[in-house]
Design a protein around this nucleic acid. Sequence first.
DNA 1: GCCAATGCAAGAGCAGTGCTCTCGTATTTG
DNA 2: CAAATACGAGAGCACTGCTCTTGCATTGGC
Lengths: 230, 230
Amino acid sequence: MNASRTARERARAELTREIKEEARRQLRASGAQGLSLRAVARELGMVSSALYRYFPSRDELLTALIIDAYDALGARIEAAAGTGGGFRERWRACCAAVRDWAREHPHEYALVYGSPVPGYQAPEATIAPASRVPVALLSLVRDAWREGVLTEPADELSPELAEQAERTAAVIPPAMPGPLLVRGAIAWTQLFGMVGFELFGHLDGTMDPAGPFFAHSVERMADFLGLPPA
Amino acid sequence: MNASRTARERARAELTREIKEEARRQLRASGAQGLSLRAVARELGMVSSALYRYFPSRDELLTALIIDAYDALGARIEAAAGTGGGFRERWRACCAAVRDWAREHPHEYALVYGSPVPGYQAPEATIAPASRVPVALLSLVRDAWREGVLTEPADELSPELAEQAERTAAVIPPAMPGPLLVRGAIAWTQLFGMVGFELFGHLDGTMDPAGPFFAHSVERMADFLGLPPA
DNA sequence: GCCAATGCAAGAGCAGTGCTCTCGTATTTG
DNA sequence: CAAATACGAGAGCACTGCTCTTGCATTGGC
């Protein structure tokens, strides 16, 4: 497909990939704060100013890493959602995918789900890959509902929330009941709150190691969503 | 109590306070990344090297700000927990206290609950103020349980989790049932997951503005804890 | 009340950063 | 083949955290 017309274009694509690779390596070694354009260039045997031909600023490099991270996590959770078994097993697999990926790539997790860089405005290009995770989770809940295996919640929604739920449901047709979608969103925030707390050390000394607490909480959230027992 | 013995000691305490104040101002303006020792010194009319007499490094300054932030949030939630009304109202007040404080001090929230600075190890001095929030939340649940107004959960705990729950409950005697404490911890992670997502823009475009979603989720978590309806 | 010990601010300096600009060269395009 | 373009290299600017030395002010013991 991509015949990569000229030699220059092939070299450019190759170098862009290598820069991101080296940047990711430094990210893993010393975090986003410690990622230095000059160090990346040095490691690649080029001078720092040459790097600006590929990424116009340090923030743009970080944005590229963010998009890659979102996509990597998105692919993982989508694969988990597509496994066989009942809905509860698939829910477990999705949650485990998020936690496993986060523990394997803590700095990349921190980059996308930790504090945004000051003054950093998430560019348009990040929102699509960023939404893959919530879409996968909510789609799973919606599928369970469509198959009728779900005990549907009878929560009352305020008019504003009902409208937001409807807007949100529109991106993953066919529509599902608002109260159920909102419960899905709650479980989504719980999942990431727990994973973030584990990674950032807020569970140290109490629910530590976090494995049992995580497993238990996944079951409670499955109950909360009305998923049938396995 | 603190007669502040010598003039030198008074001046030192005063300057330490002023440094933290100016640092907090810069934090609010440009985030943790943008906090510069030299800029703080400049703003205070002193030379940068003089600042090192008060804080041995930039990280130590940040640690001082972190402790202050934990204490400020801790004081807020403790005040909210101590208000009158039923347990559900107090639960609402606690959750609102966390969200309100976070929205009022987004950069300080990011500092303590966002990604930890790379290679930054939370010093001993932070764990006591950091625990004020979970202690306040769990104490509220425990009080409701002691008064018998709670429908106690019948969740089964794995042996490891039961042991962790027991260890955790020991710091807020008298002991409470493990399954209930774990539900409290789940609600705790949900609360901070949701607040973090709102602050860091992960709800933009869906549950945005986040007020209705927040209010609804607080009720669902109150149900989840078995708190009686208001 | 004096004097040594200590606390402290100032300045210079080091190694590093992101980023800009210019300049000569290599590649691509018409 | 010539003109347009892309590119790497280097110098340089303004900034950062941090260290070290120097000289002055405050303190506590005699």
